[in-house]
Design a binder for these strands. Structure first.
Lengths: 345, 345
DNA sequence: TTGAAAGCGCTAACAC
DNA sequence: GTGTTAGCGCTTTCAA
């Protein structure tokens, strides 16, 4: 049974001091080539790898960034992938804390706090501002992700929800829609509110009302169920605007299962720009938020804050930086009139 | 600027020794209620949280499990979510190492090794067996995930790829298919090979050939492109069997964009059982591998190995445990004859 | 029950 | 260039 091999073991094997072993791995240029070779050989035979945990105890830096992210949803999954990839590219690791609806976010945060991560990305709307303020006080670099409500308390990164939804609304108006039904996910979520506001204002400017129905969540099934409510209404709206893509896929399938055809009977928009929105099967008109860009900003903000902490002890730029990334509208067949009648069935 | 508060600070504040503070958090039952209250109060005012990193240095246990997982693909994203959730439920954290095609997996592994995680789940087919053997020697509890080739070297968890694909093949035969085209992802991947073998054998028993074409990857776009090759062939096969769901979505959309209708012109199967396969838009016949079950087995195996390490110093059960989880076939409309001609277009 | 003291594996002065 | 030494924040004997 191989015991944990440490720098002391390597030192013994190589016939040098422990400090020399440490140097060989942390600043090899301060070790003579001959010694270095000896040490490396010894390390190789023993299978030694420096212990980053022990290192971090001294250096006060773990090179680990934490992220608190909802456990489910296509959008969040792509965000997680992006974080992991981008942090890896910067030599950092991702300690992932995911939570589901049933979880107690406070418990998750308590758990996070123990791990002295270098920075923390918070992507939960369920973290109260009091909690945020308290965590911020500990000096842990915090960044709120896609959580506009946190802006003003901690630095935040999000897509421009309002103007994105506004753009979609203008597009819908441009397609001639005069009656619009809006399908939200969770009405208490700040992103949900802001997106709805964008739609309502833009439509209002054209004298178009924008009734809101809450699907109760952002998942496919929520949308599928919500579609039934739309289909049951006395008359169909010209357009349905949905607060998220996954939700929109559900609405779309739900509508079609009810015999309503998109875009012939009504047009439909989503929000997020998931990969699937571009798949030919759905080809959804949506607002593309670039997870890569958003994540890049969040990672940069997080690491800058950490590094700032280490050089300048106190930065009293009292107003936290809020990054708002513009989205891009993507026009798909869900809002594109079918030119020629379908010839394939 | 709040300084890092340690148990020493709390001890001073509470007027007790540092050891007592430590005890209050690690084994409160060994501290008198009065003292405990004092310490907790002091910790509260100072905002003290125990440092898990420092703890792990002494306890030789980080409560962190690492996972090396491909950065992209719908399937892997759901696997990551499942790992995160299930580890969290057991009080463990997930240190995620994702890698893309461009990454050097060895570099990733070197990085992992530094972090003395309690266990490591490997989900990359690109880790050679030599590498595996070497890592196994360090005593780190390793578990291979969906990587049947690693079986025999390290404990592994995977779905029963061969019999799963076999079941699909039988289903396809049952639907009357006599000519079948198989679309693989990456022919060098062991899962790909084993799945193909399952199809080829089952079909062979019915005297049906199973030509293989490689899409070059498991992504949607790979499938979309591969569809063109099928469409160009002199005559269409009765059925197309695809090595993965995401790939299958691409094939499906690609075929339909070429005017080929599924299931009318040919039937189609996938493999994985992604959530989207159940979405009405695709409704794909596929082999559902339960990520929850797979992940649960992997987590259990990993933690059991770690805990085994600590109680029994040497377990010379020379044959590593290999867990093979059966999949479940899901019949969707891609292999279901349309009873009534479509009335909606 | 509580305190003193010795590490866990590493880094970083500081000497030589 | 290399060795010595003192911690980083915690757990854990061992005494008291």
């Amino acid at each position: 049974m191989p015991r944990r091999v440490t720098s002391v073991d390597v030192a013994a094997e190589a016939g040098v001091s422990q400090a020399t072993v440490a140097r060989t791995f942390s600043s090899p240029e301060h070790v003579s080539p001959a010694t270095r070779a000896k040490v490396e050989a010894a390390a190789e035979t023993l299978g030694y790898v420096p212990n980053a945990i022990a290192r971090s105890l001294k250096s006060q830096r773990t090179n680990i960034v934490g992220a608190v992210v909802p456990a489910t949803g296509e959008f969040w999954q792509s965000v997680i992938s992006a974080f992991s990839a981008q942090l890896a590219a910067r030599g950092e690791q991702l300690l992932l804390f995911s939570f589901s609806d049933a979880d107690d976010v406070d418990a998750v945060l308590a758990s996070v706090a123990q791990y002295r991560v270098d920075g923390l990305v918070l992507a939960s709307a369920r973290i109260g501002s009091g909690q945020l303020v308290r965590m911020e006080r500990t000096g842990l670099p915090l960044v709120a992700f896609n959580q506009p409500a946190a802006a003003g308390i901690v630095p935040s990164v999000s897509v421009d929800n309002e103007s994105g939804m506004r753009d979609l609304a203008e597009h819908v108006i441009g397609r001639g829609a005069r009656t619009v039904q809006y399908v939200g996910g969770i009405s208490s979520a700040s992103t949900d509110q802001i997106r709805y506001r964008g739609a309502a204002r833009a439509l209002g400017e054209h004298g178009v009302a924008c009734p809101y129905i809450a699907a109760g969540g952002f998942a496919y099934d929520d949308g599928y169920k919500a579609a039934a409510r739309i289909a049951q209404a006395d008359d169909l709206p010209d357009a349905v605007m949905v607060a998220g893509d996954e939700l929109a896929f559900g609405v779309l399938d739900g509508l079609e299962s009810g015999g309503i055809r998109v875009p012939d009977d009504l047009i439909l928009t989503g929000f997020d720009g998931l990969p699937q929105a571009s798949w030919a099967g759905y080809d959804l008109t949506t607002l593309v938020q670039s997870t890569d860009v958003l994540v890049e900003k969040a990672v940069k903000l997080t690491l800058d804050r950490r590094d700032g902490d280490q050089t300048a002890r106190s930065d009293d730029t009292s107003a936290p930086a809020d990054v708002v990334v513009p989205g891009t509208i993507r026009i798909g067949k869900t809002t594109t009139p079918t030119q020629t009648p379908r010839n394939d069935g």
